[in-house]
């Protein structure tokens, strides 16, 4: 079976359901909207000396991703789990019985789309915020800034893929969303918040992967990390790989 045929089929699937457009539109609107709101109301006089020294205008553009990523989680989950909730999975697998083709095709198409939306979101957010920050703003040509902004787009794509893997393991929208949203929104932040759990917390996918978005090392009083931006990203890649393999194992083993 031609893999390109599967890609084409999955592209048709993804572009013909409403959930794709509203989740991805939310990723963009929430991220860009909150970044704009935050920088438009930003008052540099409220910063103390230390904060001023580590002020990271790039991170200011990208911090709203914390919220925007929730919609990306939903996107990643729904791409996979609606196959199960609608019963389409049986029709899909009867047409493409090779599980690796089916899953890889779906993940490739959805991840590519998430990457496109992710990059669009991070660049739009960056340029809009920097314009609003005025004198405090920074150019894309400054050291490490391009890496951080591109990295934010990569982060969103990887996050979507991670969620697809988890959804393939759990096979239910409700189960996957109710595990992933609290995990990314609360658990990840909570664990790095406490000294005792920080080392563990720093290795969670969003904390490790998010390091790529920082330009100034200790911006916003963030703690020291045992890895650099790409090292952190690599950790998130490993998490994602594990989720994808887990999802594939479940798809292979369990009855459709």
């Amino acid at each position: 079976m031609a893999f390109t045929a599967v890609l084409q089929s999955e592209w048709t699937k993804i572009r013909t359901v409403a959930s794709t457009s509203w989740t991805l539109a939310l990723v963009f609107l929430v991220t860009v909207g909150f970044a704009a709101l935050f920088s438009a109301t930003f008052d540099p006089n409220r910063l103390d000396a230390a904060q001023r020294a580590t002020f990271d205008p790039t991170a200011t553009s990208l911090s709203s991703m914390e919220l925007g990523q929730l919609a990306m989680i939903v996107f990643g989950v729904l791409v996979v789990s609606t196959e199960y909730s609608t019963g389409m999975i049986r029709t899909s697998l009867a047409a493409v019985p090779r599980r690796e083709h089916f899953l890889l095709g779906k993940m490739a198409v959805a991840t590519a789309l998430a990457l496109a939306v992710g990059l669009l979101t991070s660049f739009a957010s960056f340029f809009l915020t920097q314009a609003l920050l005025g004198d405090l703003g920074i150019g894309i040509g400054e050291e490490n800034v391009l890496r951080a902004v591109t990295g934010a787009g990569l982060y969103l794509a990887l996050l979507a893929l991670f969620c697809m893997g988890v959804a393939a393991m759990l096979r239910s929208s409700v189960a996957a969303i109710s595990v992933l949203v609290p995990f990314f929104l609360i658990v990840s932040n909570l664990l790095v918040g406490f000294e005792a759990t920080r080392t563990v917390g720093q290795y969670l996918p969003s904390n490790a992967g998010g390091r790529i978005m920082q330009v100034v090392p200790h911006a916003f009083d963030s703690p020291e990390t045992p890895y650099g931006p790409w090292g952190g990203f690599g950790i998130m890649v490993l998490w994602t790989l594990a989720a994808v393999l887990g999802g594939y194992a479940v798809l292979r083993k369990r009855d459709a």
């Binding site: 089929s9 699937k13 359901v17 609606t82 609608t86 389409m88 029709t91 047409a95």
Partner: peptide, 22 residues
Amino acid sequence: DAKAMHGGRSAYNNLLCLAQSN
């Protein structure tokens, strides 16, 4: 199972994605 289609997709598109895969 007659309901084994994505309800949010049109009849045409449900068939189109199956056709393309093969």
